[in-house]
Amino acid sequence: MTLTAPVSLRRQVPLTIDGQPVTVFEGATILDACSQQGVEVPTLCFLETLTPVNVCRICVVEVTGSRVLVPACSRKVEPGMEVQTASERVRTSRRMVLELLGSSVDLSLAGDDVQRWISEYGARPERHGRQATGDEGDAGSVDGVVRGSTRDTAHAGHHAAPSGDAALTVAQPVKRDNPQYVRDYSRCILCYKCVEACGVDAQNTFAIAVAGRGFDARISTEFAIDLPDSACVYCGNCIGVCPTGALMFVSEHDMRARGEWDESRQSVTRTVCPYCGVGCNLELHVQDNRIVKVMSPLDHDVTRGNLCVKGRFGFEFAQARDGGAS
């Protein structure tokens, strides 16, 4: 058991955010201090339930005395810290992070906030040129054998020189190798959340990890084998944390493909998983009287957003009963 000092005994740390004095508890991050102050700091790779990996760098802020910008999501506050969240330097870096992601990844399902930030910060991904399609990636196999996406076998290190006539992207075919969920890595921003959820932060299965290097870095099973051959147990916790729609229920993916997905016609019902006695909370997303996806609330103290295969995907029996009519 770890002992933490009662809240009342924890030290208070004074700092300023955009010139305004703030006081927060010791151990808080700059991001915590900003939210307390109502200052919006965009985040992509941060999630309350996961260890910060601080890789997306969209949350960077300026701290007086620091040579480079610092990630608000993981940097702890220090007494007297002077934080700028909207300086020109901060805005430029955030704009460029959005521009770089926008020019290389399909962000269309990454949520309204991302779209809003792109316009607020004035990111123009098109400055980097026409986006290459999946077939144009330079990670091509040289022996003419393509196993899955060419990105799956890209070797670390030397690359063919780009011609410069298109911006390299992560575009690649959707991976659909199991009945539960699809992996559409053309949408992946490499936020590491799924890896953390599958590993030490929740599931401890370690079915997926980051493989490769540089722009070829990717989420992968060993040797990019199909999920059914891997250690995956289909808990779907990776889907629960994915911010970009790269990991998606087959039901949602197919409905979107058919143009039937319509969140305005969906209701979300909170209930308790019927399978075992743990008491995991479920959020059933229902459209047209059918369960289309199952999530779990992050703020719930039993499982903090995590489920197992039964809670996550074992809803077909419910459909079968009412589906008998359809």
Partner: peptide, 25 residues
């Protein structure tokens, strides 16, 4: 730099690619 970036963070992972493309242009 494009070949040797570890790929962890966005500025370097994508920035080194864009820099190389730009010099090619």
């Amino acid at each position: 730099f494009r070949d040797e970036s570890c790929g962890q963070c966005v500025p370097c992972r994508v920035g080194t690619v864009r820099q190389e493309e730009l010099l090619a242009r």
